[in-house]
């Protein structure tokens, strides 16, 4: 088992290294010059002071050294926890900008992923044994998974926010409020959180329900189910075994789905103007903010790798077949 995890950690390490390298390269391959943009923003007309400012900024951002050295500097700083200075929110450091936005994204993503997973699996398992439910859940599930995140988000903004006016259509909290630890602010936060959460929850739900339905049906028709039924075991026992075995692929599916949901969350945040990583990412791109862009992507990469690793661990714990495969079995 130890060898398995050492190998896994190595693979995750290599993935992390490649991801960080790509992360470094992509903003630099994008067209445009961030320093020129900053100079524009400061509207410096005097060419002499413009040149001085340019040297200053290039020094601050570390653009005055060759690319390979920038790359090495990037790694050194990264390992010290320094992600650079944001261009767009100058002079705040990237880490604090990202950490401000992170709770919003996590607060949106984690409940949406887990609740849709739990509810979807329950719904799918029920659909597998009831003709009536199957006939309604299955088409609905296909419809929901096929819906693009942003389209559903726009639909929800329009219906729940504009037409019915039950929920605010944008932002993480009301403009009139300042973040604090009061009950009123919390209620306001949840009120704003609901629609974006719902859009992520609904789209993910359909996929889980369809997957679980198919898996349970497959397990119910497997040899061990047939054998139990031939020996007169009650449906309850057969279903319990089928459900437990069908859950195994769903656990690894949870990790795989994560990358997709993160992408969906980014788009959803933009639609709802929700102050999470997604909106921040859009701002970073619009302002050609290399460091912020890199910082956000780094957090996403770390998040996806972390969840995948957790799923690996969970899978080994719940499925004896993987566990025994690692230990070489015994008999």
């Amino acid at each position: 088992m130890g060898r398995y995890f050492r190998r896994k950690l190595l693979i995750y390490g290599v993935t992390f290294f490649i991801a960080v390298t790509i992360n470094f390269a992509i903003p630099r391959l994008m067209p445009g010059d961030p320093v020129a943009r900053m100079l524009n923003r400061h509207s410096v007309s005097n060419s002499e002071s413009a040149a001085a400012l340019r040297t200053y900024f290039e020094d601050v951002f570390g653009f005055d050294v060759p690319l390979w050295q920038q790359y090495l500097n990037y790694w050194t700083a990264l390992l010290q926890g320094d992600l650079g200075v944001s261009v767009f929110a100058f002079p705040s450091p990237v880490s604090s900008v990202v950490l401000d936005a992170l709770p919003y994204t996590i607060g949106l993503l984690v409940p949406a992923i887990l609740l849709s997973w739990i509810v979807g699996n329950g719904l799918g398992a029920m659909a597998a044994r009831s003709k009536w439910l199957d006939n309604s859940v299955l088409p609905l599930g296909y419809l929901l998974t096929a819906v693009p995140y942003m389209w559903l988000a726009i639909l929800l903004v329009w219906s729940g926010g504009v037409l019915l006016d039950w929920f605010p259509a944008a932002r993480g909290y009301s403009l009139s409020m300042q973040p604090n630890l009061s009950w009123a602010f919390f209620v306001d936060l949840v009120h704003h959180w609901f629609l974006p959460f719902l859009s992520l929850f609904i789209v993910a739900l359909g996929g889980w329900a369809i997957g679980m339905r198919n898996l349970v049906i497959y397990e119910l028709e497997s040899d061990y189910s047939n054998y139990l039924q031939a020996l007169g075991a009650p449906r309850r026992l057969v279903r319990r075994y089928a459900f437990r075995n069908a859950m195994l692929p769903q656990i690894s599916g949870l990790a795989l789905q994560l990358g997709v949901v993160v992408g969906g969350a980014l788009v959803t945040e933009v639609v709802f103007a929700y102050p999470g990583l997604g909106s921040l990412l859009l701002n970073a791109i619009n302002n050609q903010d290399f460091f912020l862009l890199q910082g956000i992507l780094l957090f996403i990469v770390i998040g996806v790798l972390l969840f995948n690793f957790l799923a690996d661990v969970a899978f080994v714990l719940v499925d004896p077949r993987t566990r025994l495969g690692l230990e070489g079995g015994q008999s």
Partner: peptide, 15 residues
């Protein structure tokens, strides 16, 4: 009672 054709896979693999 029955001894099925598929004895190799008759038992729940995860129990």
């Amino acid at each position: 009672s029955i001894i099925p054709q598929y004895s190799m896979s008759a038992m729940n693999p995860t129990r």
